[in-house]
Design a binder for these strands. Sequence first.
DNA 1: GTCACAATGTACGAAATGGTACGTTCAAGT
DNA 2: ACTTGAACGTACCATTTCGTACATTGTGAC
Lengths: 210, 210
Amino acid sequence: MQDPEGTQRDILEVALAEFALNGLSGARIDEIAARTRASKRMIYYYFGGKEGLYLRALENAYLTVREGEAALDVEHLPPVEALRRLVEFTFDHHHRHEAFIRMVMIENIHHGEYLDRSPAIREQNASAIATISRVYQRGVDSGVFRPGLEPVELHWQISALCFFNVSNRATFSKIFGRNFGAPKALAALKRNAVEMVERYVVRSAALPED
Amino acid sequence: MQDPEGTQRDILEVALAEFALNGLSGARIDEIAARTRASKRMIYYYFGGKEGLYLRALENAYLTVREGEAALDVEHLPPVEALRRLVEFTFDHHHRHEAFIRMVMIENIHHGEYLDRSPAIREQNASAIATISRVYQRGVDSGVFRPGLEPVELHWQISALCFFNVSNRATFSKIFGRNFGAPKALAALKRNAVEMVERYVVRSAALPED
DNA sequence: GTCACAATGTACGAAATGGTACGTTCAAGT
DNA sequence: ACTTGAACGTACCATTTCGTACATTGTGAC
């Protein structure tokens, strides 16, 4: 029985895992083909070649993750709560999508040249900024957030704190002889990230005493 | 004229550049050999093979960067100033050593398995923590820093803010259509990082109004 | 039913690439 | 000067790995 869409999905899934694990040059087409229900022939049939497959896997990873992010709704929460929720969610979300994180790492190793070739990816990224912008604006309006901060830069900081966590866990853990992936350590890092962002954004006058 | 040490240094330098650019599997031994004053034969003579060379290049990158860090002296500064200086330095240092950052990224892609094989690297990393520990302790003692924070976790946060900056510049810039590597953007991100750490560590009562 | 075309399987080719065999030169010790 | 072992050059090999040629099967339109 033939099933074009199913075959493509199957290939893409396997490809994502393989590329995320080994990188573009480290991944093996034959290996991907072997793990697939389909054959190597099909990879070339549908995706043209290794780079085409990588690009599609990358696009797919971005799409999936962005979709997940869109599910978050913080509009109904008061600003401080909303911000906290946003950071917590980002932290957990990154943690849940390790393959995506690794794809982004790999893509950065390649200086983002494949991202360049994909208009699809660049389009749907304004929404992340839009969310944080609204939360921030509400906080400033209500007087709990200090004014003058750039939403994009805020997004950057949050991303940094959450991304690093997944991306550099291996080396960090080995160097300091401590497993930063353990549930307890993870919880601490999450708390820290939330607190850090909060203290950065909330007016010092509105901060809790310590 | 023969020059064993020189040859090895030469090879290592080229290898670092090549590995940092293309990753372990992406790097080409022939390419490295071609860029070297030596020949491919020498690579195998001195380093055993591709993995051996990668490991040595990684070790070397860590060594160089840690040496540079050791040059920083913040003991004579008051705590808040010292902390600021530490973050600023880390930020700049990471920025100056992009090849090192990329090696760490690559090593994380490999789950730190080569770092594992190198006792040399793990040894000299306690010093970074020692420095920040002393600064933090002084700050707590003098009453400007809030107590109860973990130096290792603090180091983690600082690293995250500074590392991400170099590691994810490419994708971030392309997605938001803005060059985060430009001097102005860089200065802003640095200021943000410093401020973020400061507000995280300094007691809220001692924070400037905003 | 059969025609046209999409979907798939198999086997193979060609180049890239890590690694080595073999031979040569240089420098230091005696 | 001669010996010995380290330092180095050249050419080559074996394998891996991306990619393709060729053949075949399924399927919807008429």
